[in-house]
Design a protein around this nucleic acid. Structure first.
Length: 259
DNA sequence: ATGGTAGACCTTCTA
């Protein structure tokens, strides 16, 4: 079973590119982030034609997440539990049903820049809510896969130049610690567990020639519950997609599970 | 030294 995550940076501006990738790779489940549209403007039919069930948690202009699955999506949760005042659409969770049911979430963690502002505080608070939710999910029978744009560079091997990112919210000690705390709850970073090599970047900025110079960072992650981690066969970063026409600044990451 | 690009949307914000 292949589960993908991809920050598409506007699903409508990128639809042709996104569909092209889905036709080539046909993941069983996919988690999209930064769809940048309200629910009504998500291209549901285009994905249904490819055989997917669709669940959307959209928002105007910013954020927005979605889940796609070849089996029906059940028990959909829109929005990260724990703060009714948080209106940003950054979390959707559901069970991809069937004989190999998986509980999956599409996560768009706050960026948090600049450090020292309420944006960074929001990032850390969101991380804490996610940790609590992740703990709750371990009580369910189904394996759990939490995929998305975590906006965290886990370690120095995940960035072209650690020094250049020291002041950035994505590489703050608190951000990295919060990401590790998710693993202490009982989740496994799929890329690390699959012996992913250093330099497995998933994001290259549009600016300053970051892509041709390979100035990338690894911030799109898959965290797996124990049963899911036991079934891990491999992780593939679809790096070549960054070189396509009209690319997102993120590329798809696919985890392959023996489920 | 404070740029450089992309998307949504309406003038600036977010990344």
């Amino acid at each position: 079973m292949k589960i993908a995550t991809w920050n598409v940076n506007s699903v409508n501006a990128r639809l042709e590119t996104v569909l092209r990738w889905f036709e080539a790779e046909s993941p069983d489940i996919a988690c999209l982030q930064e769809i940048k549209c309200v629910d009504e403007r998500f291209p549901v039919e285009a994905f249904e034609r490819l055989g997917y069930s669709v669940a959307v948690h959209g928002q105007k202009t910013y954020n927005g997440v979605a889940l796609l699955s070849r089996t029906p999506l059940e028990d959909v949760v829109r929005g990260l539990p724990g703060d009714p005042d948080d209106l940003q659409a950054r979390y959707i969770e559901a069970v991809a049903s069937g004989p190999r049911a998986v509980r999956v979430a599409s996560i768009y963690l706050p960026n948090g820049n600049p450090v020292g502002t309420d944006k960074f505080a929001y990032k850390l608070a969101w991380f804490e809510r996610l940790r609590r939710r992740a703990g709750e999910l371990l009580a369910f029978e189904d394996p759990v896969a939490l995929l998305g744009d975590y906006n965290v560079i886990p370690g120095p091997e995940d960035v072209h130049d650690p020094q250049a990112w020291l002041g950035d919210a994505l590489y703050q000690p608190q951000s990295r610690s919060a990401y590790r705390a998710l693993q202490w709850v009982g989740y496994t970073d799929a890329y690390a567990a699959a012996d992913g090599a250093p330099g497995g970047y998933t994001f290259w900025d549009y600016q300053a020639g970051a892509w041709p110079r390979d100035l990338g960072i690894r911030i799109d992650h898959a965290l797996l519950s124990p049963i899911a981690a036991d079934a891990l066969k491999g992780v593939t970063i679809h790096r070549d997609v960054r070189g396509w026409d009209k690319p997102s600044d993120h590329v798809p990451v696919v985890v392959d599970l023996a489920l």
